[in-house]
Design a protein around this nucleic acid. Structure first.
Lengths: 156, 156
DNA sequence: CCGGTTTTGTTGAGCGTTCAACTAAATCCG
DNA sequence: CGGATTTAGTTGAACGCTCAACAAAACCGG
């Protein structure tokens, strides 16, 4: 931590504020749409998606937390709610007696299937439709770079 | 709303997931740093910043909500907390008897001044240092495009 | 094999956000 | 002017997330 602060120059300011505005607006919009149309926040939708893609539609809580980029605590609370909604079920892990396995229920899969088209449409409308193909490519590279950078220097 | 869903192709999927991972990680990291070093979430920091930049370090609640991209309700709750912390104060608006004006206190300004260098350093480390100048420029254009697009088609 | 450490997952409190409902003042318009 | 509508801001309940504390099982080193 040096002594002199390297403040943001006007261009960097502008970039940072545009980024904040856009990413906040994007996520809020998608979150609201999903809440309205499917009765769940985006974070829960992501959990169901990951489960639906896993073999047997089941995943260890740890792996699910990793995949969705959430803390164990967060996932635990989320799983409790998803279970109460009947969208997942938790089973004991046969190979590790500490472990739990989250399983997507039929009802959960049906709910996801019903929600997916509208949500994908939203992602398209609010993100991909607004950008040129070149920009989409740029956004991918930028995001991958940032994600790498952030997980290297770690959650501290 | 058409009948056929235009699903995301593999490239779009990859872009979307990378974006989600990166933006979530970035905001969580900055939020945690700010909470640790300054005892406030990023959203509250932004409120103080906007107030500090306003003439007289004061803004109508409405304008402040607009500038920080938050709902009236959110800002109202936030203002209550910031007031309890002694960082802002609320006054009646002289020209509109419905109105309230949020004013940054000396203590609020001092807290902000103490928090700013560390936060800016964080933004630099986690965002700007990871990207090339060209990428920063791309990110700015992308963000501005998205922000425009999202505020046009509106909060629905 | 045994004691310390790490890993897995849960829990409860506290906080911030959303949403809907509400009050009060300002504005609009016939 | 006067009644309807719009705008400003607040409130409380419900919800999701964070953080710290915790229990239980697994792992690791001597």
């Amino acid at each position: 931590m040096g002594l002199m602060t390297r403040w943001l120059d006007p261009d960097e300011q502008r970039t940072w504020r545009a980024y904040l505005t856009a990413s906040r607006a994007l996520m809020e919009t998608l979150d609201r749409e999903l809440q309205r149309d499917a009765g769940m926040p985006h974070a829960y939708y992501e959990i169901l998606v990951r489960l639906s893609e896993a073999p047997g539609r089941r995943l260890r809580m740890s792996d699910l937390a990793e995949l969705t980029g959430s803390s164990r605590s967060r996932l635990s609370h989320a799983a409790a709610r998803l279970e109460a909604s009947g969208w997942i079920r938790r089973e004991d892990c046969p190979t590790d007696r500490r472990g739990q396995v989250a399983v997507l229920t039929g009802e959960g899969f049906a709910t996801l299937a019903a929600a997916a088209p509208g949500h994908v449409e939203g992602v398209r409308r609010h993100l991909f439709d607004a950008l040129s193909p070149a920009q989409v490519d740029q956004l991918r590279r930028i995001s991958e770079t940032l994600a790498d950078h952030l997980t290297d220097s770690g959650p501290n």
